[in-house]
Design a protein around this nucleic acid. Sequence first.
RNA 1: GGGCAGGCGCCAAAGUAGGAGAGUUGGGGCGGACUGUAAAUCCGUUGGCUAAGCCUUAGGGGGUUCGAUUCCCUCCCUGCCCA
Length: 380
Amino acid sequence: MKFIVENSDSDSKARAGRLFTDHGEIETPIFMPVGTQGTVKAVNQTQLKKDIDAPIILGNTYHLYLRPGTDILEQAGGLHKFINWDRAILTDSGGYQVFSLSELRKLKHDGVEFTSHLDGSKHFFTPEKVINIQRSIGSDIMMVLDECTPYPCEYDYAKKSKELTSRWAALNKEAFVNSKPLYGHDQFQFGIIQGSVYKDLREQSAKELVELDLDGYAIGGLAVGEPAEDMYDITGFTTEFMPLDKPRYLMGVGRPENILESIERGVDMFDCVMPTRNARNAYLFTSQGVLTVKNSRYKNDFTPVDKECDCFTCKNYSKAYLRHLYNAKELLYFELATIHNLRFYLNLVREARKNIIFGNFKEWKTNIIQKISNKIVQED
RNA sequence: GGGCAGGCGCCAAAGUAGGAGAGUUGGGGCGGACUGUAAAUCCGUUGGCUAAGCCUUAGGGGGUUCGAUUCCCUCCCUGCCCA
């Protein structure tokens, strides 16, 4: 995989890079909208391109495997064709479902057994199987199977889990080498560094994965309930052991301020359900702070969600209208709110990139975080 | 005009063969949470006050009773049926 670091910030580890895939270039730092089931909830692919301008989105191996299933995906010619998306796709392996569906799975030495949340059927995921499914999906970036540990996590468990993840990663690599893309475009594979909040485990995990010479490396198992300071600390510590010339992906993160702090610590890629899920739950991000648009104080506020925002929603509609749509349970609400939040996230990382290139990332970051992380209480 | 069935908190209802209590369930309102999505979900709250207590409340008024949302009388209102 070709990845070039174009510019590094002088007084932090922040970098501006460019990632090349057969489905387009991705300027980093980047935020990748989550589209678990082959759709970023509430918005369509044209909106993702035109209104949000996302160069890459996520899909999920576990969910797509259960439904529609690999046979349908293969008949469709892969996920890109199936969902009519010609930009990049990264698929998570199902490792997060090991965590989030913990009551429905059993961890084994060689894989994980899931009880489908859809119909109760049993399925067994191994590193090899996860690669094969992702071959059927045809994602540009495939993630290795891992265990995303919960928080808090005992040291001994974190150690065992990290060992499991490293062992699986080697098997992933083997399956990767022994298989081929199905649809004529290249696919790459990222490893996932685990180790909970324990630095020695993080270091070992990073080294073990780097040894496998994968196309990129992710930091997993963070943003699962630990204090933000721990997340920053572990992130900054872990990137020290990640190759400079490969993309670094912090999985599942996060709030806008989390992303900026992690960019400072050397991370290039992010994903999170927060902008999409929170949009659906009336929580909107703006340049002046966060707001809950369902609150009664907005019932006659006919100004845009964010005066400084250039998104379709802010250019055309008011907070009062969004609040009305939300309260009336109108479907247009989800679309407008999701467009706004995703545009905000993508604009934020684009701005971060500019400021890294300008060389004043840290100063910009400090100022912007102060503005965007407060809760708007007064009318602005 | 007559008969029958009803009127319970913002709304719609449940319940009470008289007995704990501003009191059940939905909805609505209000507030909060959400971090590699089992999430258009979940949680809290929703009479008043001089608030670990007190006051006022089940269509209005009156009665029986130690005690009434529940029983009786009367008036008002709603729905259905008959003239």
